[in-house]
Write a protein that binds this DNA or RNA. Structure first.
Lengths: 194, 194
DNA sequence: GTCTATATCGGGATAGAC
DNA sequence: GTCTATCCCGATATAGAC
């Protein structure tokens, strides 16, 4: 039982670092410390383990978003918390890019049936961000703003991965924070709080 | 002689659509209409053809940027021309993402020695955009602005690939155009807007 | 320059012993 | 549940004929 969780954990990391297709069963088995034969007792096909990894990432993401919702009292701070990911995960992103974006892109090129499942990870962030903006009073623009923040994260991650430039990342974070502050400033004049 | 060019052309397209690692020699040979054996007369290793594809993309990009410089008289229009790529190439981007971003990301995960060569494609756009902003009078912020526009393109491409949403793309293009207009309006003023 | 045939290797997947 | 041994296939790469 515990072995299965170990496999998913190792595969999750290897898929992120080396890509889904490039990661062999041997590499996963090696990382866990079991034989290839034993591996097949837990997962019959490579797609099966991909499904398990996606499910694990999905529940981990849900937990993280719920945690942010508990930690940060204001929706604006929650959005800022999301924006900060590119700084908090900077080391990994510089080496391997965004876990969601790179996997979605790879599965798209492979024409893999699990692609929508990977897009579902994007949707978790999208709807969560959307809700934050709705709570801030942006009923009409909430999804537009959510997608804008999501696009920010993907753009910064892609170039952080290409150029390894921490100052660029910080400048973009500051820029988005300023954009957010502008939205909030414009809103309170037209839609005063409570 | 012409066969070599055909191979590079086919490989370029297949690397973009299906990814570098996923593309087999057989698939390239098939697309060109030659046998696998003949293939090795022109390219000895897979890395060799990748180098040729990167060189082809590099010269094609240089030509495109030079063309934009001839077509558009003002630097601002040239930047807008770049921004419009995500609309002009929307169909391909929805299916395969950005050719530069996805290849750079894949080579990073593979730990491939040609990765810096792929990053060089980003640098072509970066320095070109930087020069446009310099010509607009932004000496200090030119590279910052260039990277911001580049990040925009990567973010939009990634989410366009994930969600296939043309309206999102247009909204982001409009948003960046507005940002650019603000920069241009504030440039000669002492109190620039955000 | 182009072909067919083939060597070699790695990875996904299975069988069966313990 | 875990192991070793093995099958099978696809992919890189080579040899040599035409």
């Amino acid at each position: 039982m515990e072995t299965r969780a170990h496999i998913v954990e190792a595969a999750d990391r290897l898929f992120y670092e080396n890509g889904f297709e490039h990661t062999s069963f041997a590499a996963i088995a090696d990382a866990v410390g079991i034989s290839r034969g034993n591996f097949y007792y837990h997962f019959k096909t490579k797609d099966e383990i991909l499904t398990a990894v996606l499910a694990a990432r999905s529940s981990r993401t849900r937990e993280m978003l719920a945690e942010w919702e508990r930690d940060e009292s204001s929706p604006a701070d929650r959005v800022r918390r999301f924006v900060e990911i590119v700084v908090a995960n900077q080391v990994d992103i510089e080496s391997y890019g965004c876990p969601v974006g790179t996997l979605t892109s790879e599965l798209a090129k492979l024409g893999h049936p699990a692609r929508p499942h990977a897009v579902g990870l994007f949707e978790l962030f999208r709807t969560w961000l959307c809700r934050q903006f709705e709570e801030l009073g942006f009923t009409a623009e909430a999804d537009d703003f959510a997608m804008h923040v999501l696009a920010f994260s993907q753009g910064v991650a892609a170039l952080s991965n290409a150029f390894h430039d921490g100052e660029f990342v910080q400048r973009e974070v500051d820029r988005l924070d300023a954009w957010l502050a502008d939205r909030l400033a414009g809103r309170s004049s037209e839609h005063p709080r409570h």
